[in-house]
């Protein structure tokens, strides 16, 4: 099961990284969303995996680690806020530059 979760994390991070390197704002936003899924699951996994051991006092004798969960919970919400901010930034950039290229000019591949 741990291997499975590790593979999931790997795939989420890989796809996220790949999309982040695209030249248009929309795939970058998608990539960051995927990347934040990956990071959230990664953080969550830092507490170890347990099945049916919800961290509610009195339900289980050996509950799962609640701390990474608390951290990830806020991370999910903040991740959403960041995504929203990026989306709007992308829209603003499109409105100002009349292109959805990440560099604000539609000159195709720039730099390296």
């Amino acid at each position: 099961m741990e291997l499975l979760v590790a593979v999931i994390i790997g795939v989420l991070v890989s796809t996220g990284v790949y999309l982040c390197l695209r030249a248009r704002t929309f795939p970058v936003v998608m990539g960051l969303t995927l990347l934040s899924y990956g990071v959230n699951v990664f953080l969550f996994a830092m507490g170890g995996l347990k099945i049916d051991k919800v961290a509610v006092v009195g339900l289980n004798s050996d509950p799962t680690d609640p701390l990474p969960q608390a951290l990830v919970l806020t991370a999910i919400v903040i991740g959403f806020a960041m995504t929203a901010f990026l989306v709007v930034l992308a829209l603003r950039s499109q409105a100002e530059h009349d292109t959805d290229h990440v560099d604000g000019n539609d000159s195709g591949e720039g730099g390296r």
Binding site: E2, L3, V5, A6, V7, I9, G10, V11, L12, V13, S14, T15, G16, V17, Y18, L21, G38, F42, A45, M46, G48, L49
Partner: peptide
């Protein structure tokens, strides 16, 4: 693709080791 593959694999290995 190379970058994505290396980073994804690296993060997966780290996660697996910790878990």
């Amino acid at each position: 693709l190379l970058l994505a593959g290396v980073i994804g694999a690296g993060v997966a290995v780290m996660a697996f080791l910790v878990m």
